[in-house]
Design a protein around this nucleic acid. Sequence first.
DNA 1: GTAATCACG
DNA 2: ACGTACGTGATTACT
Length: 876
Amino acid sequence: MAKEKLLLLDGNSLAYRAFFALPPLTNDSGIHTNATYGFTTMLQKILEEEQPTQMLVAFDAGKTTFRHESYGEYKGGRQKTPPELSEQFPYIRKLIDAYNIKRYELDLYEADDIIGTLAKQAETNGIDVIIVSGDKDLTQLATDNVTVYITRKGITDIEKYTPAHIEEKYGLTPAQIIDMKGLMGDASDNIPGVPGVGEKTAIKLLKEYGSVEALYEAIDGMKASKMKEKLVENEESAHLSKKLATIFTEAPIDITLDDLAYAGPNEDALLEVWRELGFKSLIEKSDMQSAVQEQEEIQLSIVDHVTAAMLKETMALHVELENEHYHSCDMLGIALTDGTDAKYISVDKALQSDELKAWLEDASKKKYVVDSKAAQAMLARHGIKLEGVAFDLLLASYIVNPAISGDDVATLAKEFGYTNVQANEVIYGKGAKWSVPEEAVLADHVSRKAIALWHLQPVVEKKLKENEQYDLYNDLELPLAKILGDMEIEGISVNVETLKQMGQALLEKIAVIEQTIYEQAGEEFNINSPKQLGVILFDKLGLPVLKKTKTGYSTAADVLEKLQSEHDIVKHILDYRQLAKLQSTYIEGLTKEIHADDGKVHTRFQQALTATGRLSSTDPNLQNIPIRLEEGRKIRQAFVPSKEGWVLFAADYSQIELRVLAHMCQDPTLVEAFKEGMDIHTRTAMDVFGVTNPDEVTANMRRTAKAVNFGIIYGISDYGLSQNLDITRKKAAQFIENYLQSFPGVKGYMESIVADAKREGFVTTILNRRRYLPEINSSNFNLRSFAERTAMNTPIQGSAADIIKKAMINMDARLKKEGLQAKLLLQVHDELIFEAPVEEIEILERIVPEVMESAIELAVPLKVDYSHGYSWYDAK
DNA sequence: GTAATCACG
DNA sequence: ACGTACGTGATTACT
């Protein structure tokens, strides 16, 4: 049998090390994970390298130890453990348990003492011992059979202390480490030592005298010096300090070496904890991922013929898709359950069944689904109009907590403690290994999803009601999903020819600029590579470096703009960048997304993604089509109506976020300004610059005021404003102060919303959407400041999102009621884009502003601007 | 996969 | 003193 090897870990010390060595990390639920992650990687590495036969992690027990009896101030004056670390200790314990590693703590004793005691016992029994800690004190335990591993700066970087290494490093024996600490003390443990004696002096003294005791026996013979005085004066302290630093190797532990046998982790439990903590890279690296989570049996039947008897009044329905691109991918299967057994129906059978089609289209038959919009869009491609969605797990989870990420049923289910369903990755694999399994496996997986939905519907709805968010979910998000589905399915026509011509013109221009840049640089290089560009600009041409990134020089537009006067090449690079962006993203990228069959693009609006409640748009993103610069704006000429004689109609909220702010803070000046229909940036300029007449406000003053207003919405900071306006921080701070003095209501609101967030842990919008801010009470300045700005911004941005969502629902109803052909196509945060027959424009001009302005009544009026034209470009 | 950049509100 | 504007998505380069 191989020689036994005992690994002893200092749990507290390693957790602290990991916490301070790694940047602040959090998982999807906002729990900090830097200590747990560092601890885990360290553990993984050491397990692999050492292959121990026995293991234990020791922890410090409560606050007081036997050392406090002889010295009350022991470890006094220590900083309180940061809450971001405290919250991680339970997970570290969970991790250790999942590894099947013994952990131990003992009242009145520190982890050191437990480790010392066990190390001694093991050595007596001829077992090799390795001790791992971040605390050098432990090196006193080193012997020929006991090696002490101390982590260096990182956590996986380790220095191995054997007696020989200690001799080499300090010229001392391990036992003399204690004497060294007795003389020099330890600030972190509040051990006094002898003032004025540091590491160097302590080592010198010990080389000469051997120990603290021997030193004091010989002290009379020492020649008079300042140091001798200090030593004499602090003799008592030296002895006490040595005593405190001595690790006790006779602790009354009630575990034996036999209890410490280590035979490897419980892989399922470990994966479970890793998933909870969001250690995706570790899960992927490990070969445990294939380990199938223990699943309860389910009752399911694969049906050949859908009968009316199978289709109940209320059922969980799952439509399994190949991937997230539901406008183009395949459907893999369908499962239904009413809480008894589950029915799995293959795609072929499902599409042949008129009974199923009728049931799916029957609004009175209630369906519990996940991602109703995806199911709606997929079924629509097969001529089935999904109706009667009564529960959508994706949306409900998002409302409970928008930080919950992922659209996999397994991921969402787990948030609510339901685990009887596998992650897609487990069933299909990922990347190149992705494949659809045999039907039995697929049927089981899809059925489990339906069963999960059935179980979760009451659980999640209860949670929504507890948080008073059921209305937001049921009356806003759920009906909105269907409207968004209709919009996506409808799509918007894009003229390929227009794009093609623009692309050709762009390519020619780009080629010319490219040559000019190469000439001015004196060589050819990849202009698209910031790294290569940096070398040309800052090394070769010697332009001044104004800003750096983590990896090198910054070549971002704001930096280049400041360098324009330095060299002609800069302007050309800016032009190149602008045109290259248009070409790659908006000409080539957009063209790829045009469906060949209808000449349209069908974006996907992500409804359960943003932290604030906004939508986002992907494949293609239609919410960032250029508008600010004329060259880019022309891209909009390619967006056209789908029918002859139709036009595009666009309506946007004017200053919706500032109006929301006015409503929430009730600042009299701000409210009044909106009620009187004033230009809000001019009004702000008057207050910030102290002028009484709007005519005195210059264009520049208004521009500055506009930036201040943005700053207010974003959670103002003087630095941010100074960067934006390219002014000094001091000036920016002055503007902010002027603003807050002029609008005391805003100041009060900002203060109270941050205070609320600190108390409740979350902020809310007008319709009670929540965003949790776990870092609002962090002791880390950056994290806390970020959370504070978020607390100020989210209610504003989120409430604006609430308003336009409500407007979309009301608008959809209104279009139906009026019997119009006009269709809503796009939403871009504060604007709605429709297409309509030209003869309906007059009606739209009347009803769209009316519906949008009355979506939610605020303390200030909402204002909507609108226009129409043959293309999106012309609807300005 | 991450970083840098840039498009939008 | 700390280092920053809020919220997104796509492309490219590079490891």
